[in-house]
Design a protein around this nucleic acid. Sequence first.
DNA 1: GCGTTCTGTTACAGGCTGTTACGATGGCGT
DNA 2: ACGCCATCGTAACAGCCTGTAACAGAACGC
Lengths: 228, 228
Amino acid sequence: MLTQFLQQNGSIALPAASEADVRRHLATGRIDLILLDVMLGDENGLEICARLRAEQDVPIIMISALSADHQRMSGYQVGADDYIAKPFNPQLLLARIKAVLARAHRSSSLAHRRQNKTFRFAGWTYDAKHDEVRSPEGFQVALSRRETALLQVLLANPRIPLTREEIATALDVTAESDSAMGASGRAIDVLVGRLRSKIEKQPKSPQLLRTERGVGYVFAADVIAEET
Amino acid sequence: MLTQFLQQNGSIALPAASEADVRRHLATGRIDLILLDVMLGDENGLEICARLRAEQDVPIIMISALSADHQRMSGYQVGADDYIAKPFNPQLLLARIKAVLARAHRSSSLAHRRQNKTFRFAGWTYDAKHDEVRSPEGFQVALSRRETALLQVLLANPRIPLTREEIATALDVTAESDSAMGASGRAIDVLVGRLRSKIEKQPKSPQLLRTERGVGYVFAADVIAEET
DNA sequence: GCGTTCTGTTACAGGCTGTTACGATGGCGT
DNA sequence: ACGCCATCGTAACAGCCTGTAACAGAACGC
């Protein structure tokens, strides 16, 4: 169960019935992550989330029975790290928790892509300056713009599971992540498949661009970035 | 039966009627493990457990007639190594004791799975980095994600009996909330069966992945882990 | 304007996993 | 020894998720 998973990692669950409780815990102990239900009696979970985020830098995952899109949007706008609709798959929740914690542990939010660098991973080379990708054998591989962008996002966040939404957001820096994001669910899947077909030796059993069932995708290789 | 087991291991049972008794024993002799009943007259077993744990590093197994979930949670939060609901199967208790002792002897809690290592067991090879499993004959065997995860858990805890709940937790699954395992806790059984069918020469009479009747499963082989 | 390339959508197929049901097996009391 | 009961093994099934081929619209270069 969840509690056991927490214990296994040396963590414990602290139930909180009110915002005051949360603040007390924040002040007292070391809080890794907050699970916040949007529908809290008379209080408004969104506002609480916004307030907490404005003051503290704690990862927050929001839970709500309302899976309406605007609600979801509100959750993100308010600064939550993730959003899950009730009823949710507990397994999925765990995966999300792990992802959020891993990210929080490493640094802060999603890392950005950088320029004028050369990345090396598993024998491959990606020259960000000239947008050149070379295989371990030295062959140059042509990637489309979108595929390149995806690769950049992955290289900037190695070993960290990324949800499709996160990837989509990172790719569309300019585009507004409207509910279209939810509608265009499989776009990322297809994009991932296309990138795989170009940089995986065996696209059927990917070694680099692995899928995390119920979550998203991970770049499963160490990345070395060198200044050019 | 319990007494027999204790004698067999050169240990004895020291009854304690109060927290003071326990402390006396802790101070006097070498205590391997504490069996603590949650419902102690006017005292609160949970608090005692928490206090003892805060001071000493002794394995504690808690026993209670209240199998309610929050009770169980409290038991874990308080730092107990295991929790058993009354009425319990004496055999199960015995197995749990063994498991807790074995674990305490090796290190602390449930070992984690590791990455970038190669495990060898009974001629088999598991390359954690590339998720490759090879039989003694050198054939590569394809495991599903879940099967791989199970194998990792087993390899990390060889010779240690694991309950279904522990396995489920380690796999990030939602364990059955109901303490009564008569419920639908068969997911692990099925998973074990599937793994057996792939890594056991004779799945009907398993040599590696043995079942501990009334308890769970054990990985009955020595494991050698090498850094990659 | 026209053809080429890229990208998102859709639909279908296949894999994986939990659930259920039923038979097999082992333990234990009589 | 026998039978009862709990536990375990596993086949079959269904739901969910993912991979991907095919198609159509968009973007782009000429």
